[in-house]
């Protein structure tokens, strides 16, 4: 007998007391917490991102190229990873060396890059979370992991939802998903939160209107 059959057999014997049909699940919890205007939801996102040490910027679409130039400049970035379909104008003012996200890039190469700029799939206001789904404006998972500085552009209010339930509704489970809430952190020393372990130690989020 294979282990598969053995385990499934044990499960079935263990559940001999369980009737075949049972009442469906009642979801008595809320779809979102509190009532907010769209502007208030965006404001909450900004607050919660900042609460977990992400650096939050506001910008219009027109100001974005200049802002990104400034952020990379202030970080002293000589090189930046660029997802395949990042809108070209975002980086038009940036003169850092562009490293294109390619399958052939090695982790060691990415480790020598200073920054990465991406879009996102959705942002969750109640938890201060941005979610990446590997779309062409976000690139492979590793490009937002190995470089030490991640700048993520969120289109507000279109890409912002209030809650975790609303975020899951928008996401496609067949895509590789990364939920990011602030820069890398740990609670492993005396259960106290410290920012900055293996992921990017600086996370900047740009909320772009228009």
């Amino acid at each position: 007998m294979s282990s598969r059959e053995r385990i499934l057999g044990r499960v079935r014997r263990a559940l001999a007391d369980v009737p075949a049909d049972e009442a469906p699940l009642v979801r008595g919890y809320l779809r979102e917490h509190g009532r907010r205007s769209t502007a208030e939801t965006v404001e909450l996102l900004a607050e919660n991102l900042a609460d977990y040490r992400a650096i939050v910027h506001r910008s219009t679409d027109g100001q974005l190229p200049e802002l990104l130039m400034r952020l990379l400049g202030e970080h002293g970035s000589g090189s930046v990873v660029v997802p395949p379909e990042l809108p070209a104008y975002w980086l038009e003012a940036v003169d850092a060396t562009r490293i294109h996200d390619r399958a052939a890039n090695t982790p060691q190469e990415l480790d020598r890059v200073d920054s990465v700029v991406t879009g996102c799939a959705v942002a969750v206001a109640e938890t201060g979370t941005i979610v990446l789904d590997g779309s062409p404006d976000q690139g492979r998972r590793r490009i937002t992991l190995v470089p030490d500085h991640h700048v993520c552009v969120v289109r507000v209010p279109d890409q912002v939802v209030s809650s975790v339930p609303q975020a899951l509704e928008r996401l496609d489970p067949t895509r590789p998903l990364t939920w990011i809430s602030g820069p890398s952190a740990t609670s492993d020393i005396e259960l106290d939160r410290v920012e900055g372990v293996h992921g990017p130690r600086t996370l900047e989020v740009v909320l772009v209107e228009g």
Binding site: Y52, P176, W179, L191
Partner: peptide, 14 residues
């Protein structure tokens, strides 16, 4: 677990 609204990273893969 860590008393956070959300933990810093959650990975989902299929």
């Amino acid at each position: 677990s860590t008393a956070e609204r959300m933990n810093p990273y959650t990975s989902m893969w299929t």
